[in-house]
Design a protein around this nucleic acid. Structure first.
Lengths: 282, 282
DNA sequence: AAGCGGCGATACCTCTCCGGTATCGGAGCA
DNA sequence: TGCTCCGATACCGGAGAGGTATCGCCGCTT
């Protein structure tokens, strides 16, 4: 199977429309139709059901969509990492570390310091990204290593080491009645009147239904809380970056949050290994 | 990057010789040279150092070899799993489970029974293979799920669930002096006079250096032990399949062996998920 | 029922590029 | 100074990728 065929199929499977897929690929529709037919013939499998009511995926088609995306990511990763390896004139390509903006501020600083002190340390580019983007960046080779937070981020398919585990706190506007309490439970804060939990965007950019305000990053969120429009359950370490007007109360039965360092299993290059070693020693 | 280019590069990188690589690929040498040059130009990276003393990999080349192999495996896996999904006329493709021959006999039987009792269970093809082959089969799509044994097998890049943990025992010929002991330590059995530890083949089929007899499977090994030519440290569960003339003694400080069920992270098809669920309920 | 629009398949052409053969050029070696 | 080994280059023929024009089918409209 050629990369081109796979790219074409994924486009059609995502659009479920040959014309639009062709446009997206920057080619005409007939060669696309022909390529997909060829692919189906070579695989000996019907991938698409062409009804008059548009195109649908067969069972085999949805398997190929899932697996094909992963394969295309792997190819893209190979390409990008090779390019980066070649850029480094000294034979020591830099490492790209990705983490969520606003999280792990202190831990990250300590990690970078600890690694930089090692003999043979190479440059570490820090990349900050939004919620849920890290996995994709790690998978397609734009990043080499990531700091993830379980259970929010999925670590499926990566090697990981646990770095830090912490409880969660509820963040409230100063002066809220619960503020005086030494600790609360999930049930106490699940539906505070007038202070709904915020909604975070999904990977495709849309928001789930619900009462809470949509937010894109933790700065927005903290501001909304200070304004008395929301409350949120967050890892303890947000305390370090709290502004005036915000108070935290520990939530006894909230799931604990574990910060892990993650990397693609095949890419255990020397710099990544050293970075992981430095991290586990913190 | 096209699959063809990647396949060609991997062949050359493995052979370190354009002529032999071309032969292996079934093409002539000139188109191969040309394709590699094109790939290098498009990547903007020198992949191979052409010296008069043969070909060597550059830093970027070894990155592409590592990543490229993974990518090719992913493509092969996509192809195979799609073909298999299409073969099943009922919309319920069978699942291929792979495990080492001679291991996990009882556990496997229980797992298959438990899964078969589930509603909507599909056919499970059991594949038995040699040491260290499972990971490759899982990665390139010939298998969907595997029973692995940590710490012997690497689970890098797979999702896993632990099923069973057990200690290890030393297997000795009946009548050996240590036989009467209730337990021993690693130091006691590390170098028994006349009973060396066997040597298992590496992935490439060669054997490490050492005194012990080379063996390919546990039947051979147990026979050699019965003949008084070797001893071995193995998981407790071998007791179930011991023949006459063999005795086991627990080894207190041997690392414990964990049987895990593993699957590729992207391939969480419904049948695989059901199989994993059945396994964790055992 | 006839007409129309949307969409994928087909027909046919062009040109790129893949693979083959023949040959070159440089490095080691006798 | 040849000889050999090996990768690069030159050049050619054919498969195939992509383009345009058009067909055929289905559903909707009037």
């Amino acid at each position: 199977m050629e990369t081109r065929e796979l790219r074409y199929f994924v486009a059609v499977a995502e659009e479920l429309h040959f014309g639009r897929a062709a446009q997206r690929l920057g080619i005409a529709q007939p060669p696309l139709s022909r390529t997909i037919q060829q692919l189906e013939r070579r695989l000996g499998a019907a991938l698409l059901e062409r009804g008059s009511r548009g195109v649908t995926l067969t069972e085999a088609g949805s398997v190929l969509l899932r697996e094909g995306r992963a394969a295309l990511d792997a190819i893209e990763a190979a390409e990008r990492r090779t390019r980066r390896a070649a850029l480094a004139p000294t034979g020591r390509p830099g490492v790209v570390l990705v983490t969520k903006a606003g999280a792990t501020g202190e831990l990250l600083a300590k990690l970078l310091d600890a690694y930089a002190a090692e003999p043979g340390a190479v440059a570490v580019d820090v990349m900050l990204c939004g919620i849920g983007e890290q996995e994709r960046l790690l998978r397609d080779g734009r990043a080499d290593v990531a700091l993830l937070h379980r259970p929010f981020d999925s670590t499926a398919g990566f090697d990981t080491e646990e770095l830090h585990t912490e409880g969660q706190v509820v963040v409230l506007p100063a002066g809220h009645p619960l503020t005086g309490r030494a600790g609360v439970r999930m049930a106490d804060v699940a539906a505070l009147p007038g202070l709904p939990m915020p909604r975070w965007p999904r990977l495709d950019g849309t928001f789930p239904d619900g009462a809470g305000p949509p937010v894109h990053n933790s700065t927005q969120l903290l501001q909304l809380i200070a304004l008395g429009r929301a409350s949120a359950i967050m890892p303890e370490s947000v305390r370090a970056e709290l502004r005036d007007g915000l108070v935290t109360v520990p939530v006894a039965d909230a799931p604990t949050v574990t910060t892990v360092i993650a990397w693609p299993p095949h890419s255990r290059s020397r710099p990544v290994a050293a970075l992981v070693r430095a991290a586990t020693r913190l």
